[in-house]
Amino acid sequence: MLKIVSGILITIISTILGRKAVKSHSDRLSFYKSLCEFNSTLLKDLSFKRNGVAEAFDKNYYFEDFNDCLKYVKERFFNGKETIIDRRYLKDGERREIEVYFGEIGKYSSITETDYLKQKGEEFAEIVKASEEKTKKFLSLGPKLGFTLGIVVFILIL
């Protein structure tokens, strides 16, 4: 009886872990999608009404964790402090690049700022595209692999 209960628990935990392993991919994708939105908002605000960076910070974006991150970034940004991005689903190099991005916005003339935002927009869009393809593969695979592994362990226990 104990073996059956353990086996079921292991299967459940394994499935959850499998799902969590994939979640980091989908979180990364969601973060970059929201960053694209943010960048796009900056570009639109700059091009026509010449609204400042503050307006883009005050909007709500697609991914809730991005909005939380943005609140922290906003507080640092408007106090002239460097931003530190700590999201684990982002790679080290990506965290640094995003920190640099938030350190650079708002510092230039309209022409230079527009060029910079357009360039960053293209880079972020590339990352989103590559991430979407990767996430599609892993999205269903993760829980399935986790479940399979759990069943194997279950069988071994039995």
Partner: peptide
């Protein structure tokens, strides 16, 4: 420099 940045509300292009 920091005073100028704060004056521009951290958006230099607004005061360009």
């Amino acid at each position: 420099e920091n005073i100028v940045l704060r004056l521009c509300n951290f958006s230099v292009f607004c005061a360009e």
